[in-house]
Structures are given as structure tokens and as C-alpha cells.
Write a protein that binds this DNA or RNA. Structure first.
Lengths: 93, 93
DNA sequence: CGCATGTATCCCATTTTGGGTTATCCTAAA
DNA sequence: TTTAGGATAACCCAAAATGGGATACATGCG
């Protein structure tokens, strides 16, 4: 592990919470990255990249991902805000 | 039903609805791009760019914008989904 | 018209992305 | 332990997107 400084702000706590939630949603559904990627019509590396923070997701993309995971964008946003609020306090659960 | 794919273009109907909503929220608050940009600590071109679709917003960024507009991400997402559902039917009003 | 306010566009070096392929990790079976 | 296989991460690098100050354009007003 050498230099790890991809960009200015993808590696803040907020992005970490966001990524963790997305990955959690996928594994909860019992899906692999490959399975999800097929539903999305994207390569596996796409899923891997956004879950590891190598690539960003814009809102419409996130909506597609949520759909494929059986969630709505609004529900996801709600959960995200809850998590972010939690992480502000105690931190890890 | 066809399946959805992650779109490659920023100029689909969905992105348009998204951008319109974001701009609407700003003007409703009676804010100019300059005023909003100052709250965000970004240049005016940043606001102009995402409102015109020249630049994408990821979720954390959107959250900041929403905050500066006095809204939560969840509330925004809800509105967005409503709009998208509407646009699927009749379209523009 | 002349000025002010608001927004879009320019420019272009720097970053980020796309995605097929390959390497690495993990677990369970032999 | 070795091996197989599945899951995920990392590679590579051409092509595309971004950042943001400066500047052009649009509109309203006196």
C-alpha cells in the first residue's frame, strides 16, 4: 500500500458511509457483484469500483442501482441520512 | 418491460427532470447562482454547470446542495421520484 | 442607450472513467 | 495441505469529464 490519494474528497467519512450502505444492500439481497452488474447491464468492475470508491455514482445512476437492489432512491436517502447522523455521534455501531 | 440500464448520457429525460428540480428549488428560495455558490463555497460556474448538465453531481455533493437549499436529501429524492413518475405519463405540464 | 444583475460558455491542464482482462482473496472439498 | 472455483479488486491507458477564473451573452430598468 503505497500512495493512496485518488482525489480530493471521495474518501471522507461520508463517502465511506455511503459506500458501505450500498454494499450492505447488495449482500443483504444475496447478490454478487456479477449478478448485480448483469441486472445493471454493466461490467462487474463497475460495481466493484463504486463500492471501493474508485468511481463516483451520480444520482440517476444511484437510482438505477437502488432499483436493481429492490429499493427506491428515497428509501436509500433516508437510510443514508440516518447512518450519517449516527456516524456523527458514536461512530461504528 | 425492457430492463433499465445505467445510462451513458447525461442528457436523458431523467437527468433533465433532475436538473429542473434542482434549479426550481433554488429559484423558489429566491437565490441566485452566485448566492448559492457562496454558501457552497464553490464558484458560480459550478452551479451553472450542474444545472445545465455540463457536470454531474454525486450523492454527497447533492446532499450539500440540498442542505444549502434548506432541504434534506431524502425529501429531494422523494420529490424527484414523484417527478420522474409524472414524466413517465403525461410529461411536461 | 448604458448599466446592472444573472447565467452560460471558454479554455485546457489535470482528473476521472470505462471495461475487458488478469491478479488476488476466501472458503470448502478432496 | 493442496486444489478448485467463485467473488472481488486491481491493471491499463485511450477517451471523456472536470475545475474555475475570465469572459460573453441575456434581460430588465431608468
Amino acid at each position: 500500500m503505497d500512495s493512496w490519494q485518488v482525489s480530493k474528497s471521495i474518501f471522507t467519512t461520508e463517502y465511506a458511509v455511503f459506500r458501505d450502505l450500498l454494499r450492505e444492500l447488495r449482500t443483504e439481497k444475496g447478490l454478487t457483484q456479477v449478478q448485480l452488474s448483469e441486472t445493471l447491464g454493466m461490467p462487474q468492475s463497475f460495481v466493484s469500483k463504486y463500492e471501493t470508491g474508485e468511481r463516483r455514482l451520480d444520482v440517476i445512476e444511484l437510482r438505477e442501482v437502488c432499483k436493481s437492489l429492490g429499493a427506491t432512491l428515497a428509501a436509500f436517502a433516508k437510510k443514508l441520512e440516518t447512518r450519517l447522523a449516527e456516524s456523527k455521534k458514536g461512530g461504528a455501531a
